[in-house]
């Protein structure tokens, strides 16, 4: 399930008030975590980041290239474009940059949220995130 549903609902309920920035942090000891991050970005190019994100969480650990291409097909993506993107590691620069950022912040767990600087480690419910977002919005108005 992952963080997707709760984050989606936050973005919907606080539309125009909250900006979402996603950073990648593929787990260092999983063989397919890097290519999965590439796949998420390749799907993002075609407007289906979260769909791919959710599907990969559901199908994990089947995340090798062949499976990812099948998922792209299932999501109705342009498979050639998607495959080119993951084969050329189009987003490796961005993914490496994000990893470097996470390490510089001494982060080790995913997902980790920063809500106006407040760190929340681990998957959270909508209610949990909503409470913090509301507090931060209130603080921002002061």
């Amino acid at each position: 399930m992952g963080a997707g549903p709760a984050v989606h609902k936050i973005m919907k309920d606080f539309e125009g008030k909250v900006k979402l920035v996603v950073k990648h942090y593929p787990y260092q000891y999983r063989d397919f975590s890097h290519i999965a991050a590439e796949a998420a970005m390749a799907a993002n190019d075609q407007g289906k980041f979260w769909e791919m994100h959710s599907l990969m969480l559901k199908k994990s650990p089947q995340l090798e290239k062949k499976s990812l291409i099948k998922y792209a097909q299932d999501l109705g993506l342009d498979v050639k474009k998607f495959t080119d993107s993951i084969e050329t590691k189009k987003y490796s620069g961005i993914i490496e940059r994000d990893k470097k950022l996470a390490k510089s912040m001494d982060l080790y767990n995913t997902p980790t949220f920063f809500i106006n600087g407040r760190m929340v480690v681990g998957n959270r419910s909508y209610e949990y995130l909503r409470r913090i977002v509301e507090e931060e919005l209130k603080n921002a108005k002061k």
């Binding site: 650990p61 080790y108 767990n109 480690v121 681990g122 998957n123 959270r124």
Partner: peptide, 22 residues
Amino acid sequence: ATCHIPEQAFADGQDISMSYPT
């Protein structure tokens, strides 16, 4: 401290505690 977070009264605020990756 990953599952006993000082700011969360040394719990982790989740229904089921966090776990070792995978």
